[in-house]
Amino acid sequence: MLELKKVNVRYGAIQALKDVNLRVERQTIVALIGANGAGKSSLLNAVSGIVPYTGEISWNGKLLPHHPPAIVRAGVAQVPEGRQVFSNLTVYENLLAGAYVNWSKQRIEKNIERVFSLFPRLKERASQSAGTMSGGERQMLAIGRGLMSEPSLLLIDEPSLGLSPILTTEVLALIQQVNEQGVTVLLVEQNARKSLEIAHRGYVLQNGKVVMEGTGRELLNDPAIQEAYLGVSGCA
């Protein structure tokens, strides 16, 4: 279980997260929704140790260190949005980069096979530069790369950014598939409806604070959520 207790993040005078408490049960998908600047990415980055924070973050009962390499080694990997694949490296090298913390030939080969079976497209493009790929392919690569460290918890940031609705559905289905293989997922997604549909639970962040939580279905049916994030009142 991922547990955040009273987590605060500051950037100078701006407080990005205020006393955030949050839990993600093992092998579930939790969606984090909120407007731009609500603190969603800051929360993921705090867990990944790349922004300083106060408070406690633990995974499976153990406090996570603040050092990114140790966090990845502890089984917590982040999939940043697709533009953050290494476009100066080939697809294959991107996957190697994902395996940085467990650099052994056999494990790399095993994990690459696993990723290729999940995303056959990547296999075709293995020797191609990641910079030449389409948005959807980059997103797949980002997720595949995230799996290379054999994470038990995957933090996924905006997987649908820049994707068509069809591709978004496809990518979210893949995330569900990854989850069914036993990986816990904390998902930040601008498309609140689609992410809540696949999530077991959801949290709503507003101005750095958790303002609401519930199961995916509860949040989907909440009128306030519908108006603010699901575009039910007509401004899609």
Binding site: S48, G49, I50, H67, P68, P69, I71, V72, R73, A77, Q78, P80, Q84, V85, F86, S87, N88, L89, A97, G98, Y100, V101, R145, S149
Partner: peptide, 12 residues
């Protein structure tokens, strides 16, 4: 390419 992304891979 990106220091942030590299850190997310667990690179020191």
């Amino acid at each position: 390419f990106s220091i942030k992304a590299a850190q997310l891979m667990g690179m020191d």
